[in-house]
Simulated assay, not measured.
Amino acid sequence: MLRPSLNNILAIKTHDLLSIRIVVNLSKNIEEGIPLRRNFPLRNLNLLSSKQFTVKIKLYSDGGQLVYENIYSTNDFGELNIKIPTEQLPFNNSISRIQVYEISYMKDLEILLGSFLLDHPHLLRNILITDFDKTLAETSSQNPKAIWGSLTSPITDYPTILPTLNLIKGYLKDAYTPFIVSSSPHFYESSIRDWLYQHEIFNAHILLKDYRQMISFKGDYLKFKDVLAHGFYKLDHLLNIIFMTNIPDHLVLFGDNYDVDHIIYLVFAQIMMNNADPWSIWKNVKDNPYFKLTSKQDSIFLENLYQVSNLLKKHNKLPDIKIYIRKTKKQTDWSALPTSVNLSDFEINYIN
């Protein structure tokens, strides 16, 4: 029997804002499934289905008191993104736990999807954001055979990129909060989390590209061109992380030169370190071949740029940013770097 389950949750509370991102999908009850010894992405292709859900969110204090309750509808892909100003939350300083229920799938039944602790401001002063493919694992999708192999093999079958992994583990020992921002399809999440657990990374927030939006007429956030153009998706998630976590003291970015991480990270650093004019940044990337913004993406991107710019002005501080780029066999191509970004203004640490 299929039942609603929580595929992803991100719940972060700062002094000003509570940000919640959840993704709900239909899956089999665990006892009805075949025991999985090797978890690989093809087993999760059921996540290509889409459905709208109604969820109830409850927030609890440290002492277990219910302090907030509300009902929301997800989009057609089961995704919900909400931001609640903390001034609207009673006892906001004591809120520590969130419970999520699905209430529309079965009549008169509230299905508990999960109970989770919130990330709090003192945990968010040091942020680490990393790509996954070719940054942490030497995966391959160069041709149909390689893509099929990727779908039908656990990620642990691919070589681990130890220099990157060891550097990241060093930062995690220094209390950095990790985010995985990858263009891998969303149904790779379970396999990626298994890989992270096997390498003793237990608290990473995973953000992957939802391929349903690119092949559906219902989606307006991502379009089919975003299958290959990763710039908007990744940069928008980087800006959203900053907006959700506030301005960190230290921000470390890990990527590779195989695709566009080096371009995206420098545009992001230009925004964060120089508090660059949002309109100028937008004009420089909207027609860039790695971005190719649609009219809807124009408005989303500009709104997030202005939100982050206002945050930087409000806090009157700039984060310390360090960028690591793992060198693949591919030559690093800077030709698509927007003209507003000066390469010599930034220090890049290369990983061989």
Score class of each variant (00 low, 15 high):
residue 4 P to L: 02
residue 9 I to S: 00
residue 11 A to V: 00
residue 18 L to H: 05
residue 21 R to L: 11
residue 23 V to P: 06
residue 23 V to S: 10
residue 23 V to D: 13
residue 28 K to A: 05
residue 30 I to A: 12
residue 30 I to C: 02
residue 36 L to S: 14
residue 40 F to D: 05
residue 45 L to W: 13
residue 47 L to C: 07
residue 50 S to H: 15
residue 53 F to P: 13
residue 54 T to C: 14
residue 56 K to C: 13
residue 59 L to G: 08
residue 71 I to P: 13
residue 80 L to P: 10
residue 86 T to I: 05
residue 87 E to C: 04
residue 91 F to G: 06
residue 98 I to G: 03
residue 102 E to I: 04
residue 103 I to V: 12
residue 105 Y to W: 12
residue 107 K to G: 03
residue 107 K to W: 00
residue 110 E to H: 12
residue 115 S to I: 04
residue 115 S to K: 08
residue 128 L to D: 03
residue 129 I to Q: 00
residue 131 D to V: 08
residue 132 F to D: 00
residue 134 K to P: 01
residue 139 T to D: 00
residue 140 S to T: 13
residue 143 N to D: 14
residue 146 A to E: 15
residue 162 L to W: 14
residue 164 T to W: 07
residue 164 T to R: 03
residue 166 N to F: 13
residue 167 L to S: 10
residue 167 L to W: 03
residue 175 A to H: 15
residue 180 I to H: 06
residue 185 P to C: 11
residue 189 E to T: 00
residue 190 S to C: 01
residue 191 S to W: 04
residue 192 I to C: 01
residue 195 W to K: 04
residue 195 W to C: 01
residue 196 L to T: 13
residue 196 L to S: 14
residue 200 E to G: 03
residue 212 R to V: 04
residue 213 Q to V: 10
residue 216 S to W: 06
residue 217 F to E: 12
residue 219 G to R: 03
residue 221 Y to M: 06
residue 221 Y to P: 00
residue 221 Y to E: 03
residue 222 L to Y: 09
residue 227 V to K: 11
residue 229 A to C: 13
residue 231 G to P: 05
residue 233 Y to K: 08
residue 233 Y to R: 10
residue 234 K to P: 11
residue 234 K to A: 12
residue 238 L to A: 09
residue 242 I to D: 07
residue 253 L to D: 02
residue 257 N to A: 02
residue 261 D to H: 00
residue 262 H to P: 00
residue 264 I to F: 03
residue 269 A to S: 12
residue 270 Q to E: 12
residue 270 Q to D: 04
residue 272 M to P: 05
residue 275 N to A: 10
residue 276 A to N: 03
residue 276 A to K: 00
residue 278 P to H: 03
residue 281 I to R: 02
residue 283 K to G: 00
residue 283 K to Q: 07
residue 287 D to C: 06
residue 293 L to M: 11
residue 294 T to V: 07
residue 295 S to R: 14
residue 297 Q to A: 09
residue 297 Q to I: 04
residue 300 I to D: 06
residue 307 Q to G: 02
residue 310 N to D: 14
residue 314 K to H: 12
residue 315 H to W: 12
residue 322 K to N: 12
residue 322 K to P: 02
residue 327 K to Y: 05
residue 327 K to F: 02
residue 327 K to W: 07
residue 332 T to Q: 09
residue 339 T to W: 05
residue 343 L to T: 04
residue 347 E to L: 15
residue 350 Y to A: 06
residue 351 I to T: 12
residue 352 N to R: 07
